[in-house]
């Protein structure tokens, strides 16, 4: 049964030091407001899971929240590097970061297995690449029917999944649309879940093609207007491509990064 609570309370209830946390949203609907709340609450030792770490995990990594990162593409889309991610991997700053590296197809299928109650997923993937030699969670498997050699990855079942959506009703039923990524799979794979939304409405108008997450499949819903910025929420906001480009300069230098985080994240309270 979802309960609608303020963001700070939701994060406080759901995220604990050492948890595995999947914050999904494939370019679209990235839950920045919730990420910032995790940073403000000062969580440590997290295993962060996300296909594309994006700026949100660059920020969490740079602020020392992460012990381990499970990911498939760690760049600033169309811009270049994630400098805080790179600094952590190359120079262990601010702390060493273990990585578990996959392809998009691998992580997507691992979430599907997690949501499906299966121990692993099978795919035609990774064959011939160097990824299996570096990621023990990528293993060969033989098809019991054809004998064909395929690849298996274990299910991802995070302690907490956090996603952002366009809207929810007062009972906590969630509706999201546009590029829907792996949000549904992440929420259904997780033990606990938080959905932040642009707005809470009296009633959800049916919308063709939208993903609906029924309230009984979610733990908490929190209203977080503009909570996906600099990502976006189709129908509400547009992607702030200028900020993605500006981030390259902000994150390149440790002190500039820390000053930006102080001013824009730590000194601000959650919107509500």
């Amino acid at each position: 049964m979802a309960t609608v609570v303020p963001l700070a309370e939701a994060v406080g209830n759901l995220v604990h030091d050492g948890d595995s946390v999947a914050m999904e949203g494939f370019t679209h609907l990235i839950p920045y407001a919730a990420g910032h709340e995790i940073i403000r609450q000062g969580h440590r030792g997290l295993t962060l899971i996300r296909m594309t770490p994006d700026l949100i995990y660059d920020q969490l990594i740079g602020m020392g929240c992460a012990r381990r990162l499970v990911f498939s593409w760690g760049g600033n889309p169309g811009v270049g590097s994630l400098h805080r991610f790179r600094d952590a991997v190359q120079n262990h700053w601010p702390a060493p970061l273990e990585i578990e590296e996959h392809s998009h197809a691998g992580i997507a299928n691992a979430y599907v297995a997690g949501a499906s109650g299966l121990p692993f997923a099978v795919l035609r993937g990774y064959r011939g690449t160097d990824l299996p030699s570096r990621t023990p969670n990528i293993r060969p498997i033989t098809c019991p029917f054809t004998g064909e050699e395929l690849t298996a990855v274990p299910a991802i079942n995070p302690d907490v999944a956090i996603v952002h959506a366009q809207r929810a009703d007062r009972r906590g039923n969630v509706q999201l649309w546009g590029i829907t990524g792996v949000q549904k799979e992440a929420v259904l794979a997780a033990r606990r879940s938080l959905v932040t939304v642009e707005e809470i409405v009296e009633e959800l108008e049916p919308r063709p093609g939208a993903v609906v997450l029924p309230e009984w499949a979610i733990t908490h819903v929190s209203e977080a207007p503009l909570g996906s910025h600099p990502s976006y929420s189709a129908g509400y906001t547009v992607r702030d491509n200028d900020f993605y480009q500006a981030w390259d300069g902000i994150a390149r230098d440790r002190d500039t990064f820390l000053a930006w985080m102080d001013e824009n994240v730590l000194d601000r309270k959650a919107a509500r």
Binding site: E185, G209, A234, R239
Partner: peptide, 25 residues
């Protein structure tokens, strides 16, 4: 040309928008 692979205009102009597991699988 979009800056990212997920810019809003890609979804708005697409014939179909499917989930990430679906596009790969």
């Amino acid at each position: 040309p979009p800056l990212s692979i997920g810019d809003g205009e890609l979804a708005e102009t697409a014939d179909a928008v499917v989930s990430v597991p679906e596009i790969f699988n």
